Amino acid sequence: MTLLSVQDLSKSFGGVAAARDVSFMLERGEMLAIIGPNGAGKSTVFNMVGGQLRPDHGAVLLDGQNITLASPQKRFRLGVGRTFQVAQTFLSMSVAENVQMALVSHNRKSTALWAPARMRYHEEALALLEQVGMAESADHPCSALAYGDVKRVELAIALAGRPKLLLMDEPTAGMATRERAALMDLTAEIADAKGIGVLFTEHDMDVVFGHAERVIVLVRGRIIATGSPEEIRQIEEVRRAYLGDDHALEKPKGVSPAEGVSPA
């Protein structure tokens, strides 16, 4: 069964259509990127999938379950994890405590005030930090970390909810080039090992073409193409609308835009 099914999502703001009949699917273990120029509707679509925005019409299904009207909190407990363009961590807490708080929330133990949160799920937090290469910094305050390391901690926090689906909003924003590749390599490795579907938005085309298995291109709220990174590179409409370099992305002989690509 398909992990995520997005069906005809539409959203308007003051008569301006930010998303129009957007439909796509995501499989377990797949890395799917949404790209497009500023104002294309990427954030609107992303936030409708995450529950921050309610669509005017259309549906979002997770494992066949309709979650269109579910809150972000409910989606988290159903297996939807998320990272943000600006990393969301408690800077005054230690690295381990940040992950422990996510584990407390996921396991619905936050009402047990008589048991200090720092005593709960410590070993589980360390195991998650080991996965993202941050176990040695477990006792450090998040405020003392380099930004690339904060992004790794945020990934561990998202993994604390045992997600089926991981939403990553501009995951490499603010990071150095080498850190960007390392974070996305790590994400791809974890997604493949755990069968997590990853949907991400990204402006860095090196990140997109180096890590996405499929790419969705949005322009003015509509999907104009879906395909592998190499297929997307060859579509003239995409180059004109977003990539902008017709000469650097010359179409190989014998490749048709229709082969394996779904223009909208």
Rank of each mutant, 00 (worst) to 15 (best):
M1D: 04
L3F: 03
S5N: 12
V6K: 07
D8K: 09
L9W: 10
R20N: 05
D21P: 03
S23V: 09
S23D: 06
G36L: 08
N38S: 07
G41E: 02
G41Y: 08
V45C: 03
M48H: 05
V49P: 01
D56H: 12
V60F: 07
L61Q: 11
I67P: 06
T68I: 12
T68G: 10
S71P: 00
Q73V: 00
R75H: 09
R75M: 05
L78V: 01
V80L: 15
G81Q: 06
T83G: 11
Q85H: 05
V86Y: 03
V86I: 14
V86T: 15
F90W: 05
M93V: 00
S94I: 09
S94N: 03
V95N: 03
A96S: 09
V99C: 08
M101D: 05
K109N: 04
T111G: 00
A115K: 14
P116E: 04
R118D: 02
Y121S: 01
Y121W: 08
H122A: 15
L126W: 00
E130S: 13
Q131Y: 00
A135I: 06
E136C: 01
E136F: 02
S137K: 13
A138K: 07
D139G: 06
H140Y: 01
P141W: 04
A146F: 01
Y147P: 01
G148M: 01
R152V: 08
R152D: 01
V153P: 04
E154W: 01
L159P: 04
K164H: 15
K164Y: 07
L165Y: 10
L167R: 11
P171M: 01
A173K: 03
M175A: 09
T177G: 13
A181I: 13
A182M: 13
L183A: 13
L183E: 12
L186D: 07
T187C: 15
E189S: 03
E189N: 04
I190C: 04
D192F: 06
V198H: 12
E202P: 08
D204F: 08
D206S: 14
V207W: 12
V208F: 12
E213W: 09
I223S: 09
G227F: 15
S228D: 10
E230M: 13
E231A: 14
I232T: 08
R233A: 11
V238K: 07
R240L: 14
R240I: 11
Y242R: 10
D245K: 08
D246A: 06
D246R: 02
A248F: 14
E250M: 10
K251N: 08
P252M: 10
P252R: 11
G254Y: 13
G254F: 14
G254H: 15
S256C: 10
P257S: 14
P257N: 15
G260K: 14
S262P: 06
S262Q: 15
